[in-house]
Design a protein around this nucleic acid. Sequence first.
RNA 1: GGAGGAGUGGCCGAGUGGUUGAAGGCGAUCGCCUCGAAAGCGAUUAUACCGGCAACGGUAUCGGGGGUUCGAAUCCUCCCUCCUCCGCCA
Length: 423
Amino acid sequence: MLDPKLLRNNPDSAKKALRDRGADASAVDLFLSADEKWRKLTFEVDELKAERNAISDRIAEMKRKKEDAAELIAEMKNSSERIKELDEQRRLEEEKVNSILLFIPNVPHVSSPAGKNAGDNIEVRKWGKIENKDFSVKPHFEIGRSLGILDFDAAAKLAGARFCVLRGMGAQLERALINFMLDLHTKEHGYLEVFPPILVNPDSLRGTGQLPKFEEDLFKCRDDDLFLVPTAEVSVTNLHRDEILKPDQLPIKYCAYSPCFRREAGSYGKDVRGLIRQHQFNKVELVKFVNPENSYAELESLTADAEDVLKKLGLPYRVVELCAGDLGFASAKTYDLEVWFPAEGKYREISSCSNFEAFQARRANIKYKTGPTAKPEFVHTLNGSGLAVGRTMAAILENYQQADGSIVMPEVLCKYTGFEQIN
RNA sequence: GGAGGAGUGGCCGAGUGGUUGAAGGCGAUCGCCUCGAAAGCGAUUAUACCGGCAACGGUAUCGGGGGUUCGAAUCCUCCCUCCUCCGCCA
C-alpha cells in the first residue's frame, strides 16, 4: 500500500511512477475523489460526535444532581440518528478508499531501470564458467526420468499436471538441498530459522500483497477461510503483523523452508515440462525487517546471501536488475538470480530478491520505534528465495550431468546426500 | 466436535451503563538528590485518523464485527483466540 499522504500531496509523481511500471494511473484520481469525500464526512461526523459527547456529559451531570434531562435526551435522539447515517456513509467511503489503495502497486525505486518487460531487464553481473561439454546435455526432466528419480506420470495420477514424485536419490537430493540451504543461511549468514504454518488467513495474504488482487493464483480451502501459501514470505513477513518493534530489534533476519503452492492460472502452456513451474514446490526463503535507512544495503546483502548458495553449489548464474515494468506488484526494486540451464542454453530465474520498502509494512502494519519516546515508523521489508529447491535440483541435473548420463553431486552436498553420484 | 471459563494500555491488574483513554502497581524516559550509583521524591509515559503553519483541538479504539441506548470497557448478539474437562487423533 502506498502512503495516502503521498498520493494527496504529490499525485502527479505517483501517477508517473505507476505509468513507469505499466500500471493504470487512473486509480490515483479515483483515490483522490473518494479520499476527499471520506475526509469531508469524517470531519462532519467527528463534529457531531463531539457535540454528542459534550451533551452526554451534561446529561450525566444533571442526572447526578437529580435534575430532569428529558428534553436534552429527546434532542439527542435526532442527532444520534444523523450520526448513525453519516457514519454509515463514511464507512462505505472508507471501504472504497481502502479497496482502491489495496489495488495500487508499489512505486519503483529510482534505481530500478526504465523498461516495459523482461526484455528491458539489465544484467548486472555474472558468475561461474559455462562449460562447453563434448556431449549434448539432456534436459533435467529427461535425465531425471531415465535415472528413475523424477516420476511425472505417478504425480499426474495422484494430483494432475504440474506435480512431481521424487524417488530414491531424487527425494534424498531434494531433502539435502533444503538442509544445505538452511544450514548455510543460519550458520554463515546470520538468519534465524523458522518453520511457519503453510495455511494462512486472508489478513496475512493482504499484508504481503497477494490479496485482494491475486486471489486466483492461490489454492483456497473449501470449508475454511484459509489459503495455501504461495511462498513462505507470506507466513514469515506476517510474523510481525500489527507489531511495533523496539529500536534494538532491527534488523530481523529470518529464513524458512516451506512448500509453496501456486495455481499458475494463466500460465497454461508455459514451462509445462519438468520442475520449472509446478503447483507445489519447495523453497527456502529469506525475509528481513530493516530500518528504512539501510534497506537498499540490506537488499544487496540479501541478494549476496542467495547468490552464495549458487556459488557453493558451483552453478553458473547471472544477476538481473528488473526494470520498472517487470517488477512484482509489491516491489520497489528486485534482483533476479538466473541460473544456467545447459540443455536449453539459457539462464532461468531461480531466486527473486526484493525490497518492498514500506509497501508491505503499511499493509501489515509493521512499525518500529527509533527510541523509547519516538513516534513509530513503518519498517522496510525484504525477501528473496534462497533458493527455489526444485529449480536448483533441475539445474544440478543439467550442470552436473556426465557423458554417461550420471549426475555427480556438488561437493558441498555430499555430506548431506550421503552419496556422490546418481546413476 | 461437546461442556464450562477467560480475553482491559509495554507488562500485571481494578473497573457491570454517565468527567474512565481508562484507578493502582511494575517497567520505561526525563528531572531533583548524589563524587557516582542505589534508594527516595517529582514529572512524563498507547495507537490511528481528521482539522490546523503551529500551539493545539476533535474523533475512534478495553480480542473482532453487529446491535440496544441520549450515552457502552460495562447490556445483547455473532465470530476469533486462549485455558480446563470430555470425545477424537499424529
